[in-house]
Design a protein around this nucleic acid. Structure first.
Lengths: 157, 157
DNA sequence: AGCAATTAGTTCGATATTCAAACTAATTGG
DNA sequence: CCAATTAGTTTGAATATCGAACTAATTGCT
């Protein structure tokens, strides 16, 4: 690397990158919302979708673990899980080793939803890489790693 | 470009890129929230910050225009603008050409907040580019343009 | 073993956000 | 000049979220 653009970034580049990130982020949420409306999963909001995603396919996380992961209070999680249970996406399983604990799992309907959402993300990443070859990957990964480091540092400080 | 990875992306790369994007977006919101709490602008939520950002420094947008931009109803906008007016970040200016219209502007306190937020974004973009030189920019821009095209296509379809 | 402290999750009451519909005031078009 | 339209506000209902009080189960201490 001959020169670090980060020190000398020009205003146009800043605007381009910043506006791209902001717009992309904003639009992805709206697209996810609209895809849900068009899909068979019309009774689900975007937050509920992300809850289904947090519960995941193969683990059996506890209510507290999921609440912590989503930065929600336990009370909030109880009520959103109630909704997903009522609508048939999630099941509560009482943990037999420690009967205070509830493990959350997806029903087959919940797994369908999870996979549909995953497919959308796959499309997204695929589009991200259009026209690139494997030589470009290190740079892309570096940019993402940079951003991750930045947000991690900011998060943990 | 010799080969298009988008067609052949391996699972690890997919996971890396996808998880990066998801985590980064998620954390940015929390960081913005926490930076607000630590700043002199403790009476502002993240949504109010984004409203201040939408009002912008130099234009005098109408209430409807801002509502449309943020995909909020006019009623919602009225109430959040009320809050920002009460707290001294925003002013309503009755348009004298068309007295039905209200133009929104930032007060000097609102402009301070706007600039503080802008500085955060500048840091973010700067971190994104650490260790890159200007030869890398076309690829970075291409990846972002790809993503923008994807979300635009998905938005407008 | 027995009881106090802790832990996991739920319930409850209060507050925030958002919407859509009804409303007011101003403007425009015929 | 008045009917229709437009910009914004008000209102009432629905939803999301929090934190505190609560219940049930477990753990640790003596």
């Amino acid at each position: 690397m001959t020169k670090n653009t980060a020190e000398t970034i020009n205003h146009e580049d800043f605007l381009f990158i910043n506006d791209s990130l902001v717009e992309i982020f904003d639009k992805i949420l709206r697209i996810e919302e609209r895809e849900l409306r068009k899909s068979r999963f019309k009774d689900i909001t975007i937050n509920e979708l992300h809850l289904v995603h947090a519960i995941t396919l193969h683990e059996q996380k506890t209510t507290s673990a999921v609440a912590h992961e989503l930065h929600l209070s336990k009370g909030s999680l109880t009520s959103s899980v109630n909704m997903l249970v009522k609508r048939g996406y999630v099941e509560r399983i009482r943990n037999q080793q420690d009967r205070r604990v509830i493990n959350l799992t997806l029903t087959s309907k919940g797994r369908l939803l999870y996979r549909a959402h995953d497919a959308f993300h796959r499309q997204l990443v695929k589009s991200f890489l259009i026209g690139m070859d494997e030589n470009d990957m290190p740079l892309i990964k570096r940019a993402l790693t940079n951003l991750q480091n930045f947000v991690d540092e900011a998060t943990n400080h």
